[in-house]
Design a protein around this nucleic acid. Structure first.
Lengths: 166, 166
DNA sequence: ACTGATTAGCTTAGCGCTAAGATAATCAGG
DNA sequence: CCTGATTATCTTAGCGCTAAGCTAATCAGT
């Protein structure tokens, strides 16, 4: 069987034989997989009443450890979205009772975003299911392939200096 | 150096030692890379007056070969977006003079979308630059790694039955 | 202390997309 | 031929995000 990107590569070789379309073999496939996973994960999370962006905030807070509290700026540095998106996510999550905003006493520009008890309960319940769901998406790869794939992706991220802030 | 996902994995192992977060090593990295590339490519294309979705339509038409014409449904089957998105993209591209809509004479429900001379000129000019740009994003990987990576990504897409329609 | 630059976060118009429903043409069975 | 189901596309309200500008607090140099 050939995937959709293999077909596109073959078409390009026929139509533009003067060009070598090899980068599409990597970039096209990664973007295609990412879009498919976006939908899968969005649909999975919807079953638990969460948007992907909200799950992302919950995860980041949870794995930062007790007291499950980070400034809005700390999210920016790990999240690849703009400040406006963080503000809006936290607005929605506050309405849902997942997090609270706390003005910092020392630096009154700063806002600390903190997981509520409910938020902690939600992420601790959903995370294991989320991991199972992601593992299912990777079933086609054996453990060795998974490790090789992770390593190559890591090489790419490192080449972009992606350390998630600092 | 460690990438942002390696840091997240380490945090999870500390905070939830009862769980094995390995799927994040693959899924998290692919999604993170995809979002970074989305921005790079969007910014690159903006320099040529194109949106990513528009470039996608131009590419699909161009590589389908003369007469550079496909039905709206054919895009749907290769594109991972909804029918509404195709309609809106074609609306914008028609305004820009990149494509034209032609009602099919045989099946009058069907609309054939056709590259204009201008559209053909644009995609033939931008594509080589786009490939150079993508190659730049993959500089960190040697040719052998690129081939291995493509093969593993292809395995995943095939496991989802992704043949781009048919 | 004062002043300009910087930092942290919020606001909002606009964008592309989705989801759900609508319209219109074609097909399939009796 | 009808009639109901299907197919192809368009329409539109609403969503999350971006980009650009804003407010307010803090810092750095004099």
């Amino acid at each position: 069987m050939t995937d959709a990107v293999a077909v596109a590569l073959e078409q390009w070789r026929r139509e533009r034989p003067d060009l070598d379309p090899w980068p599409i073999g990597v970039v096209g496939r990664i973007m295609r997989i990412s879009r498919m996973w976006d939908k899968e994960i969005k649909s999975f999370l919807a079953g638990h009443g969460l948007e992907p962006g909200e799950f992302d905030v919950l995860s980041t807070l949870r794995r930062s450890g007790a007291p499950y509290e980070l400034t809005a700026g700390a999210f920016l540095r790990t999240s690849l979205v703009t400040t406006g998106a963080i503000t809006l996510r936290v607005d929605r999550m506050q309405d849902k009772g997942l997090v609270t905003r706390i003005r910092d006493g020392d630096d009154r520009r700063s806002v600390r975003i903190r997981l509520t008890d409910h938020g902690l309960e939600v992420i601790d319940r959903v995370l294991p299911l989320h991991l199972d769901n992601e593992a299912r998406l990777l079933q086609a790869l054996d453990p060795e392939a998974r490790a090789q794939l992770s390593a190559m992706l890591s090489t790419l991220l490192e080449s972009y200096g992606d350390t998630g802030g600092q």
